[in-house]
Design a protein around this nucleic acid. Structure first.
Lengths: 259, 259
DNA sequence: AATCAAATCTCATATTATGAAATAGAGGAG
DNA sequence: CTCCTCTATTTCATAATATGAGATTTGATT
């Protein structure tokens, strides 16, 4: 529980806030609105954003003067996948799990209001094929979506749901907000999420969150299983293995239990 | 030519430098070495890096105390692909080009010493299939690699080449440093790079760089073509279309000619 | 051409980031 | 087990830096 000291370097924090705000604006944002939203003086915001622009983290569309996230992020992302860490920490554990379970497995993160696949491994036993990296799926009809949203503040989840359409994918899909929120409380209770043919009739899915040292859910891992194979026994086996795996990964990210 | 004012906010610049240095260390880096490499006071480095850690941009491996790039980057990356901008700017233009040429097209960036595919489109006419996003290919045997390195300082390219092995992929592969550097000067002269069955006997490739507002090469686009189709006439047609396309994309990124 | 709104730039000042030095913690040798 | 060394972490007085008010430019609209 040894708490880390909280450091604060105003200008850096402001820059990161600006970067993240710009990132969240798919349609770009003007400097004035940025300054307003971040309660910053216009010149301060301008100076900091210009610096991010010089470094390529942010781009300004010449005509509209709007700021967008820059290509530099791609470079960082490229580095991340090269990093021994991601491989040591996640890939290694996940490969082991896939080998053990034989079922197709996905690593995903939340981006805006959707689930984005980051990496995937095909299971030998499984007839379910892996989704391509970068593919997006909805939060309301997938185990990954549930695992990624279950520990977010209720209001935030409600806002997300209101921005999207909860169209039924199968007869099992949860299509109402209260129903989904209720489902999330079960997820919190169990520690993992289940999709019982809610996204597709082909298969079921179990997903659990990965947490970092701040106890924040940063990603989630799912195991897919053909519907006809999704027996209680199999479910238990998968849950046991999956929970152990995400716990290991989280631990390696510096997560400590009960933090 | 209207030069933008160069802003400087020391702490932010230092933070970004630290972030990028950490990103480049696949095996992680200790705070002391970081401070040394960036010529920073140990406490300053520690404070700034701790802040990046608080925000999730960086992670510290508990046992080794080494710092690695954090998962937050994935979130940013997710946002980038949602951004109207990347779609408007690159995807839209590239889809148009793919439709026009009918050949398979790739968008890639340089990450460390390798080419990383960011996005791809399959051409209707082409027998060449697209490589998956995230796939890495060498710089020395691909048109993309040449396009991405041609405008880097010679010493940097030499360093990169020395870190990798220039194994022959086909009889045409360039396998020596002087040969590659010579090839790059041709690329700079033409403005585009060609791979004449150097990576694979199946096909040839033409690639050209995308530049941002700082005139920096930030990405490259390639068009693949089956070897038997790679006539002089076809080559000219592809080059014309490709150059127009990358020029449009660069322009939209704020690039101005002769800048 | 005049008006207005937004972006960009300048500079004196107070706030903030800084680094020297102190402390804590981990690992190794005797 | 204790001392020694090396590194990470924290503190705090000070000087350097980031800040924001306001001036200026840009460009769009009437």
């Amino acid at each position: 529980m040894a708490e880390k000291t909280i450091y604060s370097v105003q200008s850096v924090e402001r820059s990161l806030n600006l970067l993240e705000t710009i990132a969240g604006c798919e349609n770009g944002i003007r400097i004035k609105d940025l300054a307003e939203r971040e309660s910053l003086n216009l010149s301060t915001a301008h100076r900091l954003v210009s610096l991010l622009e010089q470094r390529g983290y942010v781009e300004q569309e010449p005509e509209s003067k709007k700021y967008f996230l820059g290509m530099k992020v791609l470079q960082l992302q490229g580095y991340l996948f090269k990093s021994r860490r991601l491989n040591d920490v996640a890939a290694q554990e996940l490969k082991r799990m896939v080998h053990c379970l034989g079922e197709t497995t996905h690593l995903a993160i939340l981006s805006e209001d959707e689930v984005v696949y980051i990496e995937s491994w095909e299971g030998v036993r499984s007839v379910i094929s892996r989704a391509p990296v970068g593919r997006k799926v909805p939060i309301y009809s997938t185990a990954l979506g549930k695992a990624l949203t279950a520990w977010k503040p209720r209001e935030e989840v409600e806002r997300m749901l209101h921005r999207i359409e909860m169209a039924p994918k199968t007869p099992n899909t949860i299509t109402d907000v209260p129903g989904y929120l209720n489902e999330l409380s079960k997820v919190r209770l169990n520690g993992y999420a289940v999709d019982r043919q809610e996204q597709s009739m082909i298969g079921c899915c179990i997903a659990a969150p990965i947490r970092d040292h701040r106890d924040e859910v940063v990603a989630a891992v799912s195991v897919s299983c053909p519907a006809h194979d999704f027996t209680e026994e199999n479910e238990e086996r998968i849950v046991r293995e999956l929970m152990a795996t995400v716990s290991n990964i989280s631990a390696k990210l510096g997560h400590s239990h009960g933090a």
